[in-house]
């Protein structure tokens, strides 16, 4: 049973927790897919510039320690708004 995947044919990042940046927001959530309407994340939390307390870096540090404080079950972010996307684990520096 170990290693069994229920969703074959998925995107390489499917199921991976990613950090997705736009000009005004930073989203952390579980990548699902790229749909015609945008990038779909599940169980996503958001840092909003000028609204959320602290900096983007502080938000990420807290997320790395305590996990994703999800505020949205499903979040679609238009592809043309995406400025960058990377795995949260890359930030943590795991092997």
């Amino acid at each position: 049973m170990s290693g069994h995947v229920f969703h074959p044919g998925h995107h390489d990042l499917h199921g991976i927790t990613v950090v997705l940046e736009t000009d005004v927001e930073l989203w952390v959530g579980r990548f699902d897919s790229v749909t015609p309407k945008g990038v779909l994340l599940h169980d996503a939390g958001c840092y909003e510039d000028g609204v959320t307390e602290g900096t983007r870096e502080e938000y990420l540090r807290k997320t790395l320690k305590f996990g994703v404080r999800a505020t949205t079950k499903n979040k679609l972010i238009p592809e043309d708004a995406v400025r960058g996307m990377r795995q949260l684990a890359e930030i943590a520096g795991h092997d």
Partner: peptide, 15 residues
């Protein structure tokens, strides 16, 4: 000590 999902994704069982 806590191991989040993001600390499991893509990593080997050994790690």
């Amino acid at each position: 000590h806590f191991v989040h999902r993001h600390q499991i994704e893509g990593r080997s069982p050994q790690a």
